[in-house]
Amino acid sequence: MSRVVLAGARVVRPVGVDAGGRVTVEDGRIVADARPAEHRPAESSPVVDLTGHWLVPGFVDLHAHGGGGASFSAGTAEEALRVIRAHRAHGTTTMVASTVTGDLGDLAAQAGTLSELVEQGDLAGIHFEGPFIAAGRCGAHEPTLLRDPDRSAVGELIDAARGTARMLTLAPELPGGIEAVRLLRDHGVIAAVGHTDATYEATRRAVEAGATVATHLFNAMPPLAHRAPGPIAALLEDERVTVELINDGTHLHPSVLGLAFRSAGAGRVAFVTDAMGAAGMGDGSYPLGPLRVEVAGGVARLAEGGAIAGSTLTLDRALRRAVTVDGLPVAEAVRALSATPARLLGVADRVGSIEEGKDADLVVLDEEFAVAGVMRGGEWLSGPPRPTALSSPRGR
């Protein structure tokens, strides 16, 4: 039996922050120990003193294309594992692999490789971003490879993922868009509205058909206007929709992020990275699917045209910015990084919050919200931040 006690941290739980909290991990899971310290028997379990730190659930990223100099679209398990390791070092213990627009055959081959990593437990699923998106809002997607979301093409990607497809982003105004949303819903795949020129009314039809996610809200869609509210208003106002936000300081102004939180509520906002290969790396030239991206000052842009091309964000940075720049309460920011995306993916029974019976996926943060330790399934991937010590007779 493997058991460790994490003590003294400010523990962010679903009900709030537990100052000086205690979390017991046994055989990879969080277990209960509600007894007062003076009534706990002496034990030989190691105790990690986390005084002066935050203890939060492992982060859950719904939308990431790469990191650590690698990309999910490379189509190899080796590169995919490099991406996963890079983001785990920054606290993301659960992640979905996002592809970019490509030839259907190439995307199907990528899905075949990534599905094996889902089956092994390294990934939580596959997200297809494109090719069923609007040409006028394609951003860092190759425009010559875009196509309408006809039933056959969408079905081909679902089948290629062998039950591991979790989300597909599309522009619902395209021919076949609403039918595609229904097809995705019927197969248990999240239909996400994004890279779209949809009107308010067309977006409403997509939500009624089953769309439940806004892919990086505000980005790659018409802006909010007082006579033409477009997709932003439709997605923010509907309680069935979870909205992705890229909180890197480049994609969104703090006031816009605040507007989204006030409109949707903390339970409907999911921070995502939309990261490409440069996440966790330095400036330079990187691939993004068939396109080339130049990163300067941490901002990724297409080498040709200069459009923003994903981000170099990691979720620990999104959390730090949410608290120190955007002024969000720590518990709300953490919820957007963990519980909300976990609920959306249908894995909230295992991850996303610090509760008895859940996987011991935990992140230790210092006073400045920098990662000091990462635990996944009860095993330290980095850290622990302080040496362990045997517990005192009072159990500490």
Rank of each mutant, 00 (worst) to 15 (best):
M1E: 15
S2R: 15
G8I: 01
A9G: 06
R10A: 15
V17H: 10
D18W: 14
A19I: 09
G20A: 06
V23R: 04
D27Y: 10
R29V: 14
P36L: 12
E38I: 13
A42R: 13
E43C: 12
E43T: 15
V47M: 11
V48F: 14
G52W: 03
G67A: 10
S71D: 15
A77D: 03
E79T: 10
L81I: 09
R82Q: 14
R85W: 03
R85C: 03
R88F: 00
T94N: 05
A108F: 01
A108G: 09
S115N: 11
E116Q: 15
G121M: 11
D122F: 12
H127S: 02
F128I: 08
G130W: 05
A134I: 04
A134R: 12
R137E: 13
C138N: 13
H141L: 08
H141Q: 15
H141S: 10
P149Q: 12
I158W: 02
A165K: 02
T169M: 09
T169E: 10
A180P: 07
D186N: 11
I190G: 01
Y200F: 15
T203M: 11
V207I: 15
V207L: 12
G210S: 06
T215G: 07
H216V: 09
A220V: 06
H226A: 12
A228V: 13
L236S: 10
E237V: 10
I246Q: 06
D248A: 11
S255F: 02
L257W: 00
L257N: 03
G258V: 00
L259H: 11
A260V: 15
F261G: 06
F261I: 04
R262H: 12
R262E: 12
S263D: 03
F271W: 10
F271R: 04
M276K: 04
A279I: 07
D283W: 06
P287H: 03
G289K: 01
G297H: 04
G297L: 02
R301H: 07
A303G: 06
A307I: 02
A309E: 05
S311N: 08
L313T: 11
L319E: 05
R320K: 13
R321C: 08
A322M: 08
A322S: 14
A331D: 14
V334R: 09
R343L: 00
G346K: 06
A348P: 00
S353V: 00
I354Q: 06
E355R: 13
E356W: 01
G357K: 02
K358D: 07
K358M: 09
D359R: 13
L362V: 07
V363S: 08
L365S: 09
E368G: 12
A372Q: 08
A372L: 03
G377E: 05
A389Q: 14
S392P: 00
P393V: 10
R396W: 13
R396E: 14
